[in-house]
Every structure is written in structure tokens, then in C-alpha cells.
Simulated scan of single mutants.
Amino acid sequence: MINIIETERLFLRPLTLEDADIAYYGWTGDAEVAEYVSWLPHHSIDDTIEWLKEIEWKQDDIGNILPNDNYIWGFVLKETEQLFGSGGLIWEERWQHFQIGYNIMRTHWNHGYTTEAMQAILSFAAANLGIKRIAGSHAKENLASAKVLEKLGFVYERDGIVSHVDGVRHFDNREYFLELSR
């Protein structure tokens, strides 16, 4: 399938409902993973199942990718075949561009996996989805995410404020853009 991507150390594949347990216990239910993002940690496996339904890939009968407002992959370590995170492209209304997003288990932080996965996803976006410009942002305090964006070649454009999905909290962020080439 065209939506499976292989890198040096990873397989990137669409997530399925069968991934609910590992996703919930690995990263979607982890408050520390969700510290700097606009979504709330999942409170139950049911939250994760609903999220997996929302991000399901849409394809026609012969496997062609249909336009969607998100393209999310599960990150699988080749060496162990362990699913340890997810990331991809999410349509951002305020910018009228796709934005990258990613979350991985804390046990896999600081190994370069997110940068490796997102490099492959950006190449896919340019070659298969025709995306020419993409956004990225991070909470100012999230220095690890800043490093990922910088390694990917994103260029800082401005500071901003992001509202948390709970509608109560807000956090200062830094906004970046990247011009993609085929």
C-alpha cells in the first residue's frame, strides 16, 4: 500500500482499532506526553478508540488515497515491531495549511525517531499529496519539539497563542513553516 512508509529504523503505517490498547497505555493516555499539546490525555480506552475512528485513512475501492483533513501514521520500530507513537499531517483551519503533529511514548524520547518519521512523512506529503507548504508549532517550553522542527528545516515565522481543547487553558507557542519540494 502506498500509505506504508519505511525508513532506516521504522515502519510508518495507518493505525487501526487493534492498536487501541498500545496507543492508550503508551501515549494517548499519558499526561506527560500531552503536556504541550492542545488535546487532552485520553481518560479511557474508549477515548482512544474514538480517536482511531476519527483518523482512519480514507481510500477508494482500489486503494487510492482520498482527500482527508488528516493523515496519521503509527510509528513502529523495525527491530522490535513495537508500535510506540503516531504522527502526521492535520489540517489547520487558522493557517489554511496542514500542520505536522506527533506523539510518542516517553520510553522512546531522545532517540531521533520523531525526526526520522516526520522526514519521511514530509517527503510523502510532497510526492503523494501535492502539499507545498506545511506548518509546525510548539509550546515555547517544549524545547524537544523545537529541535525536531529545526532539524526538519522549518523556519520560525512568529509567536502565537494556542487554545487548549478544554477552552480554558492557553499556551504561548512558536509557529514555523516549511516549503516542500518534490
Rank of each mutant, 00 (worst) to 15 (best):
E6I: 09
E6L: 04
E8W: 13
R9H: 10
R9Y: 09
L10V: 12
L10F: 02
F11S: 04
F11A: 06
F11T: 13
L12K: 08
R13A: 06
P14L: 07
L15S: 06
E18A: 14
E18D: 15
D19N: 08
I22P: 01
A23G: 01
Y24C: 05
W27F: 00
W27I: 04
T28N: 00
G29S: 03
D30V: 10
E32A: 11
E32P: 03
V37W: 04
S38R: 13
S38T: 15
W39M: 12
L40K: 10
L40N: 09
D46F: 09
I49V: 14
I49G: 06
I49Y: 00
E50W: 10
E50G: 01
W51P: 01
W51R: 11
L52G: 07
L52E: 03
L52D: 02
K53V: 02
I55Q: 01
E56H: 09
E56A: 14
E56Q: 10
K58F: 06
Q59T: 13
D60Q: 07
D61S: 15
I62S: 03
I62T: 15
G63P: 11
N64L: 06
I65P: 05
I65T: 00
N68L: 05
D69H: 12
N70A: 12
N70C: 14
W73K: 00
G74N: 10
G74S: 04
F75E: 07
F75D: 02
F75S: 05
V76P: 00
L77W: 05
E79K: 13
T80G: 04
T80P: 05
E81R: 14
E81A: 14
Q82Y: 13
L83I: 09
F84H: 02
F84G: 03
F84N: 00
S86A: 13
S86N: 11
G87H: 11
G88H: 07
G88I: 00
E92W: 08
E93S: 14
E93P: 05
